[in-house]
Deep mutational scan, measured.
Amino acid sequence: MTEYKLVVVGAGGVGKSALTIQLIQNHFVDEYDPTIEDSYRKQVVIDGETCLLDILDTAGQEEYSAMRDQYMRTGEGFLCVFAINNTKSFEDIHHYREQIKRVKDSEDVPMVLVGNKCDLPSRTVDTKQAQDLARSYGIPFIETSAKTRQGVDDAFYTLVREIRKHKEKMSKDGKKKKKKSKTKCVIM
C-alpha cells in the first residue's frame, strides 16, 4: 500500500485542523484551538488504489514558523489553505509557496490551493482571484467548507493525484537520464 505524506499549511484560523478532522473523523470542530502540530493517518481508496494518507496539520501562528522547514522537508505534497473571508490569509499563500519551493529546492512541488469556509456569506476573496492565482502557479484550486464537508475529500484526493503525477514524471525523467548515460565512448 502506497503511503502519501501530505502537509496542510496556511495562516492561523483558516480551518486547516477543521478540514483535516472532517476528512479523518467526519465531524466539524467549530471551536478554535490553535494547533502546534498534529499528525493523522487514514486509509482510503483513490482511483481504485488503496493508500495510506499521513497528514500533518501544522501551526499557522507566526511564533511556530521555525518548525516549518522541518515538516516541509518531509512532506510530499501540500494543501495551501486560505479562508475566503480573510484576504490576508490569501496573500500569505505566496509566502508559504515560496518557502516550500526553497526548502524542497524545487520549482515543481505537488500543491493544491484550497479556499476554505465557502459556506460563509462574508467572502472577501473572489473565486476568480483564487483561480487566477492557482493557474499562475500551475496547481489545482478547490473551494471547501469544513463545516458542510463540501470539497473536503476532493481537496485531499486531488493532492494525492498531483503527487502521483509528480512521481510518474520524475521516474520518466530518471529513465531518460539513465538511457543517456548508457551511451559509451570508444577510443581507438
Rank of each mutant, 00 (worst) to 15 (best):
V125G: 10
T58M: 00
A59C: 03
C80V: 07
I163T: 04
Q22S: 06
A130F: 13
C51A: 12
Q70H: 08
G75D: 03
I46A: 09
D30Y: 12
Y157N: 08
V114N: 01
D47P: 06
E63C: 07
S181A: 06
T183H: 04
I55W: 01
V45N: 14
D153R: 06
Q25P: 00
F90C: 03
K178W: 07
K5V: 02
S17A: 00
G75K: 04
G115A: 12
G12N: 11
S39K: 15
I187N: 15
E49N: 12
G115Q: 08
S39N: 07
D54K: 04
G115I: 13
V8N: 02
R68F: 05
Y64M: 03
T74S: 10
K88A: 14
K16G: 02
Q22T: 07
Y96V: 14
R149V: 09
I84Y: 14
A155F: 14
T2N: 11
D47V: 04
E98L: 03
E107C: 14
G75M: 03
R123F: 07
G151R: 11
D69E: 13
R41S: 03
E31F: 15
V14H: 14
F78M: 10
T87A: 10
G13K: 07
T183A: 12
A134W: 06
Y157P: 08
D69K: 05
V125E: 11
S181C: 12
G60L: 00
A18Q: 15
L113D: 01
L19S: 14
F78S: 01
E107W: 06
S106L: 12
Y64T: 02
I84R: 09
L19I: 11
N26P: 01
A134V: 03
H27L: 10
V160D: 03
D173T: 05
D126W: 07
P110T: 04
L56Y: 00
T58C: 02
T127K: 05
V44P: 08
K42Q: 10
D38F: 00
G60S: 03
H166W: 08
Y71N: 09
F82G: 15
T58L: 01
H95N: 14
F156S: 03
F156R: 00
E49R: 08
E107R: 08
D108F: 09
Q131T: 07
V81M: 09
E107Y: 08
G174T: 15
P121H: 10
H27D: 07
H95G: 12
E162W: 09
G174E: 14
E63Y: 04
Y157A: 12
R73P: 07
S106P: 04
I21H: 02
K182L: 04
K176T: 07
K178V: 11
V152T: 08
C80Y: 06
V29A: 10
K128R: 07
E37V: 01
I139H: 03
G60D: 01
V7G: 02
V8L: 05
G151A: 08
M170T: 04
L120W: 09
V112I: 09
T50Y: 13
L53W: 07
S17T: 02
D132L: 05
Q22N: 10
T127A: 06
T50I: 13
L23R: 14
I24K: 01
G138D: 03
T2R: 13
D105E: 06
V7I: 14
H166G: 10
D105N: 05
M111L: 07
T158K: 08
D173Y: 11
D105W: 03
R164I: 06
E107F: 04
D33T: 01
Y137E: 13
Q43V: 09
L56R: 02
I93V: 08
Q61S: 15
T74L: 05
G115T: 13
M72E: 10
S39I: 00
K117V: 14
T124M: 10
D108I: 06
K147R: 09
G60M: 00
R97W: 12
G13S: 12
G13H: 15
G15S: 01
R135F: 04
K5E: 10
F156Y: 12
V44F: 15
V29T: 11
K104S: 14
T35S: 01
K128Y: 06
F141L: 12
A134S: 05
N116K: 00
K101S: 11
S39P: 00
A130P: 09
L23G: 12
A130V: 09
E63F: 03
Y64F: 08
Y64Q: 02
Y32H: 09
A66P: 04
V109Y: 04
K182G: 05
S39Q: 10
L53K: 10
R123N: 14
V112A: 09
T158E: 07
E98T: 02
D69P: 09
K5Q: 10
H166C: 08
D108R: 12
E168R: 08
D126Y: 08
D47C: 11
V7R: 14
T87S: 06
I24Q: 03
N26A: 13
I55H: 03
E168D: 04
F78E: 05
V160E: 13
M111T: 04
S39V: 02
E63R: 08
F28I: 02
R41T: 02
K101T: 15
L159T: 08
K167G: 05
E162I: 07
D153H: 07
A59Y: 00
E98G: 04
M67Y: 05
V112M: 11
D30F: 12
L79I: 11
F28R: 01
T144D: 03
L23W: 12
K169F: 14
K184C: 15
K128C: 08
G151V: 10
D119Y: 05
R161Q: 03
L79C: 14
E76D: 15
H166K: 10
G10E: 02
M111S: 03
A130Y: 14
C51Q: 13
D132F: 06
S136C: 07
C80G: 06
L52V: 14
L113T: 02
L52Y: 13
Y4E: 10
V45G: 12
I84P: 15
K16M: 01
L6W: 05
I55R: 00
T127P: 06
K180E: 05
T127L: 07
Y64H: 03
P34Q: 02
D47L: 07
I100R: 03
I24S: 05
D105G: 13
K167V: 08
Y32K: 00
I163S: 04
K180G: 09
T2Q: 09
H94Q: 13
K172I: 03
V29R: 06
S17H: 00
G12Q: 15
I55A: 14
E37T: 01
R161F: 04
D38K: 00
D132C: 04
E31T: 14
Y157H: 08
R41V: 04
I36S: 00
K104R: 15
P34K: 02
S136T: 08
L159D: 01
N26I: 02
R41K: 04
G48A: 08
D38R: 00
G13N: 11
C80S: 05
K104W: 13
G75E: 04
G115V: 12
G48R: 10
V114L: 08
I84S: 12
Y137W: 14
Q131D: 06
Q150R: 08
V45M: 14
F28K: 00
I46S: 12
E3R: 11
V29K: 05
K16C: 03
S106D: 13
V7F: 03
K167A: 07
G13V: 12
N116M: 15
R73L: 10
S145F: 07
C80W: 04
L6K: 03
E37G: 02
V160P: 02
L56F: 01
T158P: 08
S17L: 00
V152M: 10
M72D: 09
K167E: 06
E107D: 08
R41D: 01
D47R: 14
L52M: 14
K88V: 14
F82C: 13
K169W: 04
A155T: 07
F28C: 02
T74N: 12
E162A: 06
I36K: 00
H166F: 06
L56W: 01
V125T: 09
K176G: 14
T50M: 13
D132H: 05
K128W: 05
Y96L: 13
R73C: 10
D173I: 11
T2A: 13
T2P: 14
L120A: 09
D153G: 07
T127C: 08
K117A: 15
E3H: 15
Y40G: 00
I21W: 01
K5A: 04
D69H: 14
D154E: 10
T74G: 10
N116D: 13
F90G: 10
M72I: 03
Q22C: 03
T20M: 02
V109K: 08
Q70S: 15
V160K: 14
